[in-house]
Computed example of a mutant assay.
Amino acid sequence: MKMNPLGRTGMMVSEICLGTMTWGEQNTEAQAHEQMDYALTQGVNFFDAAEMYPTPPRAETQGRTEEIIGSWFRASGKRNDVILATKMVGDGIKWVRDGKGYTRSSVMDAVDGSLKRLGIDHIDLYQLHWPNRGSYHFRKHWAFDASTQDKAGTVGDIHETLEGLNDAVKAGKIRAVGLSNESAWGTMQFVRLAEAHGLPRVASIQNEYNLICRLFDTDLAEVAHHEDVGLLAFSPLAAGILTGKYQGDVTPEGSRRSLTPNLGGRWGPESEAATAAYLDVARKHGLDPAHMAIAFCLTRPFMTSAIIGATTMAQLETAIGSKEVKLSEAILEDIATARRAHPLPI
């Protein structure tokens, strides 16, 4: 398993990260433990969670994923073998800390809540799940309007959030900080304010990235290169779409689509057509489409780690197996051709 630097933290993380958002909803505790055991044997040392998980988010299950990870740490004794990332939600989920977004005090409250559920004394990478000011991610880019944001207030909000993260770092409760569902401008504000005021510098940004969602390729890729803020790509299979299992508008029993019919705005005629083009490329070159999709993510120069998720061990084995797949120039050229025919399907 290839290891990549996590920003400028000195930590090295596997290029494949084990995602956890199905644990406690689609996966039982025992199944989650089996996934973690297997991932470690394959060289995966990086797990990603969130205080709001599992998904779909519900008040009745919120925090269960972190509790399951904590029970595995206690049972396995392997806390020190894992770089653990988790996330704090921004404004908007009423049953998570009364819907409070990021303030100096709420950061510590959220960190303490996660530490209690996990049963550990520190978190390796603590991420902000989405900006207080809102985000263009999850298909909101179609109607995104930055002109509604408060210029002075937004910068002040970021500074206050960094102060809260700094409190947690000084207390030894988190080692490094990261962003999620952020923009190039937002990322640069976190970098600029951290450097100006001696506050924690962001190590990574966790945004969606896959063959049919490539918003990261331009401005954010430039930020990642110059500022050493690498991408942690979530949904490298576009919620399973790129495996081809939903083609023909089918919904396999127990699949994510059975819980979220439009797959977070990803599923539609355009994404089905684009997926058909990528399936043709995989078929032409004798590749498993899941292998090709994840391996493509791993070719990107800004990629720190691709976050995989699975509801079965067979899916997990396939996803992790992508680390052995190398894409030739001919395959990459065919992928580029398919992209030009379907430039923004979701």
Rank of each mutant, 00 (worst) to 15 (best):
G24C: 10
S322F: 00
G134I: 01
M188R: 11
T154W: 09
I68T: 13
A319M: 10
G70M: 13
G101S: 12
Y102M: 05
S271C: 01
S305R: 06
A314N: 15
Y53L: 03
L231V: 11
D121V: 08
M188A: 09
D48M: 01
W130G: 03
D81N: 14
P56C: 10
T20E: 08
N45V: 07
E222Y: 09
R201M: 06
G119A: 01
Y126D: 04
D228L: 14
R256T: 07
Q127P: 05
P261Y: 08
R74W: 00
V191G: 04
A194D: 08
A330S: 15
P345I: 09
A274M: 04
D219T: 11
Q315R: 05
E324Q: 12
T337L: 13
K326D: 13
C17D: 00
F190V: 09
L259N: 13
D91W: 09
A184S: 05
P5D: 13
A146K: 15
G113Q: 12
G248D: 03
L327V: 03
M3G: 01
I335V: 15
L332W: 12
G10E: 10
L118T: 14
N166D: 15
D124V: 14
K116F: 00
A336Q: 11
F234H: 13
S105L: 07
L332P: 12
L40R: 03
V202W: 02
I308L: 01
L279C: 09
A110L: 07
M292S: 01
E67L: 03
L259V: 14
Q35L: 00
H291P: 08
G172Y: 06
G119H: 03
D167F: 14
H137Q: 14
E208D: 07
A168H: 09
T55Y: 12
A59W: 07
C213W: 15
V229M: 08
L125Q: 01
E160L: 10
D167T: 12
V82Q: 01
